[in-house]
């Protein structure tokens, strides 16, 4: 019997990690399916969903306004100095609007909401897990999935497209401030180019992305918090901390991967 190093060990480890990842993805998909089903479990879900729309949507509004306006301003600045080289600075409005509506609006909104609301979802549910609050719901015969997860998924589906719309609008206004007010592009040309170049397909594509990102962020964040106690890399407060980090990192990665996949289908 050989006593030397096992040359298959790295392959075995890679296989085990892949199987674990696939298992995790499958579990997350079932988690999402259960969450979506429970949105419609009872009319008593409505006030919980509205409360979460306030937490996820309304409380994220300020940061979305702030990031949106500065993103638009930077796009206006960069776009102007690129387009002016080709004598096409009149196309600035179209460049800003299409960049925001098709890509930056949905993606940056999802990433900002992940940082603000996704992390708080994972942390709040994780703390509830380690302090027996979820078990308490269970023994009161209150389905924790229906009480905690379903309202957050529903609220994300409502909030993300609305926040994306706000981001797009203030971003376009940010581009206007830079392009028209500071750099002297004609105001009529700026808005005319937006009107003539943006099509309905661009807007629906952006909203489809925001809906997909809402599902991703809410599912990943709630899942990480809900199964904090099952983590292999830490228990108790450390587990909550790791769950929160994982929720943010995985959400951002999945959002960007999904963005590429969906964009390749939409274009």
């Amino acid at each position: 019997m050989s006593t030397g190093p096992n040359i298959l060990a790295p392959v075995t480890a890679l296989g085990a990690a892949t199987l674990r990842l696939l298992g995790e993805m499958g579990a997350m998909f079932l988690f999402l399916a259960d969450g979506l089903r429970l949105i419609f479990a009872s009319p008593k879900q409505i006030p919980k969903i509205l409360n979460q729309v306030f937490v996820i949507g309304s409380k994220s509004l300020f940061v979305i306004l702030l990031i949106g306006v500065f993103t638009g301003m930077v796009l206006g600045l960069q776009g102007y100095y690129t387009l002016v080289k080709f004598g096409s600075e009149g196309l600035l409005g179209a460049a800003v609007a299409l960049s925001l509506i098709r890509e930056l609006g949905p993606v940056l909104t999802a990433i900002m909401v992940t940082g603000r609301a996704g992390s708080s979802m994972a942390a709040e549910i994780g703390v509830m897990r380690i302090t027996d609050q979820i078990d308490a719901l269970d023994v009161m015969d209150i389905n924790p999935m229906a009480y905690l997860v379903a309202p957050r998924i529903a609220a994300s589906l409502i909030s993300f497209p609305l926040l994306t719309a706000v981001f797009d609008v203030v971003g376009i206004l940010g581009g206007y401030v830079t392009g028209v007010t500071l750099l002297g592009i004609n105001e009529g040309v700026y808005f005319y180019r937006i009107e003539s170049s943006v099509e309905m397909a661009d807007i629906t594509g952006g909203f489809m992305k925001s809906l997909l990102f809402a599902v991703i962020v809410a599912t990943v964040s709630c899942y990480q918090g809900y199964f904090t106690h099952m983590r292999r890399d830490g228990v108790g407060p450390e587990g909550v901390s790791n769950s929160t980090t994982s929720a943010v990192v995985l959400s951002c990665v999945f959002v960007l991967v999904a963005d590429y996949v969906l964009t390749s289908f939409l274009l």
Partner: peptide, 16 residues
């Protein structure tokens, strides 16, 4: 189970 009332170790009250 609905006929059981449970007092958890630290109360397990919902913090929110």
């Amino acid at each position: 189970r609905r006929r059981m009332g449970v007092l958890f170790q630290d109360g397990a009250l919902l913090g929110s």
